[in-house]
Design a protein around this nucleic acid. Sequence first.
DNA 1: AATAATTGTGCAACTTTGTTGCAACTGATA
DNA 2: TATCAGTTGCAACAAAGTTGCACAATTATT
Lengths: 136, 136
Amino acid sequence: MEQLRETLKGHHLRTTTCREDVLSTFISKKNALSHGDLEGALGENYDRVTIYRTLKTFLEKGIIHKVLDDEGLRYALCSHNCSEEKHQHDHIHFKCSECGETNCLENLHIPAVQLPKGYQPENFNLLIQGVCPKCG
Amino acid sequence: MEQLRETLKGHHLRTTTCREDVLSTFISKKNALSHGDLEGALGENYDRVTIYRTLKTFLEKGIIHKVLDDEGLRYALCSHNCSEEKHQHDHIHFKCSECGETNCLENLHIPAVQLPKGYQPENFNLLIQGVCPKCG
DNA sequence: AATAATTGTGCAACTTTGTTGCAACTGATA
DNA sequence: TATCAGTTGCAACAAAGTTGCACAATTATT
């Protein structure tokens, strides 16, 4: 509870019940969530539009980041302290084809790739699909 | 022209002008295309729905594959001979933040990643964002 | 070459997903 | 507790994607 407020304040955001609820949903569910997931979880309490805007704000402030897979866009908490100025997520997402959950594999880093001349990479995003330990 | 028919036939598809046009657009543009891109290029000749269905069919038959980035879903030609049964795309996509184009980096392969115990990976998808040689 | 069987297309209607403007409200600050 | 920027809900809209069905085009059959 108090933790949530700290996180919001730390990113220069007012604490509102919607933001607290969205943030705490991310924390409790752990895996990546779509707008639809959040709407399912909180939709009776908040307007669809408010959830969209909350996600947008969290993205901008560096609280969450986008996660991509075949089925669409999801969001997950930024593990390291991202801010409005810099985002750092050269990490790996694993999507389970059984349970459908997508999780960040913390601590793992993407191995270096030797790009052809002229390419100036800025960030890397690796999605691995397969079966997770829970379902395997 | 004849090439296109061969490709379609090879994947057990009837040759229709829409399919030929969609396929030849992929071949000539080279980069990954969204439904909207195709609609822009061919929309006067074909119905929106037909283009959706053509993409779906091409996906199923292994002629194209999905390409993901922050901004949405795109499609690109399968380089190696994919079929309805098996798709093989452990390749790398590079998205340029200047021109917005996404291209497959053929020939490059994703380096091995040491996953924690229990994870059974099936396919890998690496998206690199940055500046491409053309814009750099 | 004509016809039958099959597959593809266009249209209309609809659902889902995401966006924008504005009035009303709320939380932080003094 | 009065103020004011920041936030929310509502309504309306725009974009993206789907479905059913009648008709058209392609392939197979004779």
